[in-house]
């Protein structure tokens, strides 16, 4: 297909027309991607028939909604959030005023003096460690089991993937009723002793919630890992088998190195989870989860919820924005460093 270059896209073109051209190209590329048509290197509507032009307009209109949504709910929101962290709400004036670094000072003070934040940090680290030490290896092993199409692999996959299909709120409710109602009743039937549910007993709450998070998050990980594993060239595996590699050797020497790019992304983004993971606490307890269960992600989310409910949200938003920004300042270098290290130190496939 021959496509003419748009002359208006040259040096002298206005910013607006260049932007319009970019959008047109994006839309056309989107169309190509959607209908698996080979896309042109450059694009202009001039060379298109009326029918095709109508198509482009149609797709442009369709694409406009997500683009506008992205602009408003991502770009504008994030700019506003950064600006908010340097402001405070003046009740007397009924507007936000410049506050300098006061919110950041409050955040740093809270990190050193607020036990709840430290509990949140500790719980978040524990959740990350459990995810790294338990959830990830189990997920990889199970994915390998499914990938090798061993006995009942597909049935297991279905069972373990179910929690990922059912909405989180429903899952937490079902899990809550099971561990807090059904399990004590079963135990009572067996042992003839009254037992308190796992979520009612403060000593067992954190453990049972961690277990839920591992179980509920298992399916998603397995899906990604099996997807990555299924992309491994059969000839590589076959060759290894011919050379006498055992299943374990295949797993560690072939599978892991070949899915390492996927795995490293999981490991790197897991670090972000330290600061965002809520451990489904809001689903279980609403905005008033017991303080010993708090994670950093939940702390922020619940603080917003509580301040909205108390009618003082404007007062809290600047502080919470500063807290978010502080966390980003920690997460960003940490994640990038981890990613670099994982790339550097991870197994090589060449």
């Amino acid at each position: 297909m021959r496509v003419k270059t748009d002359k208006r896209g040259g040096e002298g073109a206005s910013l607006l027309s260049r932007l319009a051209k970019k959008i047109r190209i994006a839309v056309y590329s989107f169309e190509c991607l959607l209908f698996r048509r080979r896309g042109p290197k450059k694009f202009s509507t001039k060379g298109l028939s009326k029918r095709k032009r109508n198509d482009v307009i149609f797709y442009a209109l369709m694409a406009m909604i997500p683009i506008i949504q992205f602009c408003i709910f991502y770009i504008v929101v994030n700019i506003n959030y950064i600006l908010l962290s340097f402001r405070e709400y003046s009740i007397a004036d009924g507007r936000f005023i410049f506050a300098g670094f006061r919110n950041f000072v409050a955040v740093i003070n809270d990190f050193s003096g607020n036990g709840l934040m430290l509990t949140g940090l500790l719980n978040s680290l524990v959740a990350y460690a459990v995810g790294l030490g338990v959830s990830l290896p189990l997920g990889l092993l199970f994915s390998f089991y499914v990938y090798k199409k061993m006995l009942f692999a597909n049935n297991f996959r279905l069972i373990l993937f179910l929690p990922s299909i059912v909405p989180g709120l429903v899952m937490t409710m079902m899990y809550g009723y099971f561990v807090d109602r059904a399990l004590p009743s079963l135990l009572q039937l067996i042992t003839h002793k009254e037992t308190i549910g796992l979520l009612s007993d403060p000593a067992k709450q954190f453990g049972s919630i961690l277990f839920y998070c591992i179980w509920a998050g298992f399916g998603g990980g397995v899906l990604i890992y099996t997807g990555a594993m299924s992309g491994i060239d059969d000839s590589v595996v076959e060759s290894a088998r011919l050379d006498g590699a055992s299943m374990l050797q295949e797993f560690f020497r072939i599978t892991i190195p070949l899915i390492w790019p996927t795995l490293s992304i999981f490991l790197a983004t897991g670090i972000i989870g330290i600061f965002t993971n809520q451990l489904a606490l809001f689903n279980f307890f609403g905005a008033d989860a017991p303080s010993h269960l708090t994670t950093l992600g939940y702390y922020m989310y619940a603080a917003v919820q509580r301040s909205v409910a108390a009618g003082g949200s404007e007062l809290q938003y600047p502080y919470l924005s500063a807290l978010g920004l502080c966390m980003t300042a920690i997460i960003l270098p940490l994640t990038l460093t981890a990613r670099r290290l994982l790339e550097k130190l991870g197994p090589k496939t060449y």
């Binding site: 409710m173 809550g176 009723y177 807090d180 109602r181 004590p184 009254e194 037992t195 308190i196 549910g197 979520l199 009612s200 279980f284 307890f285």
Partner: peptide, 9 residues
Amino acid sequence: DPAKQFSPT
């Protein structure tokens, strides 16, 4: 009833 009174369910 201790099984219910602090249960989130």
